[in-house]
Design a protein around this nucleic acid. Structure first.
Length: 165
DNA sequence: GCCAACGTTGGC
DNA sequence: GCCAACGTTGGC
């Protein structure tokens, strides 16, 4: 088990599951199922622990944006949606006996007073190396550095940045 | 709707 | 083990 990242970014398409859905869920908690990428799976299975902080990101949205915060409340466990034939994320190679795919439980913390849209984030020097902003980056579960997490939280509590002259 | 970038699959 | 073909992601 690695002890490194304690901060994460989770992507979700708001048409499918938005931060409002999370806030409205029973106990404001849900299982983060359906991830079918090995690198993302490894983060969930091996590295996420209860108490880890999460940036909630809306992808394929207008605009794409970080919209709030959540917390990991249950570490990786087998993603049962992979066992159900009727499920979009069914995978016949995954079984109870030898699971391939994993999920975690995520609890809502807060919705930011304003969205932090992708173009705005691209303009923040402290976020230059953020995984989200790298060219071609598609990972739906990403590690985030503490400095990046802190910069984003701080930004969210500020008023909108001054308009460019 | 387009398409660049990426991950996965499968033939060899 | 290489790599072309394919499917998917996700910003624009």
């Amino acid at each position: 088990m690695s002890d490194a990242p304690r901060y994460w970014l989770l992507k979700s398409e708001p048409d499918c599951f938005s931060i409002d859905h999370l806030a409205a869920a029973p106990k404001q908690t849900t299982y983060w199922s359906g991830v079918r990428n090995f690198q993302a799976r490894n983060f969930m299975r091996d590295d996420m622990r209860p108490g880890d902080r999460v940036l909630f990101y809306h992808s394929s949205a207008e605009p794409p944006a970080v919209v709030g915060l959540a917390t990991i409340v249950k570490p990786g466990y087998p993603d049962f949606t992979a066992e159900e034939k009727s499920d979009d994320h069914y995978d016949p190679k995954h079984t109870k006996q030898s699971p391939i795919w994993y999920m975690v439980d995520v609890k809502f913390d807060e919705k930011f007073p304003r969205e932090l849209a992708l173009p705005e984030l691209r303009g923040i020097p402290a976020l230059k190396e953020m995984v989200l902003l790298q060219k071609g980056s598609r990972l739906s579960v990403q590690p985030v550095r503490k400095a990046e997490f802190d910069a984003i939280v701080k930004l969210a509590k500020q008023k909108s940045p001054a308009k460019k002259a």
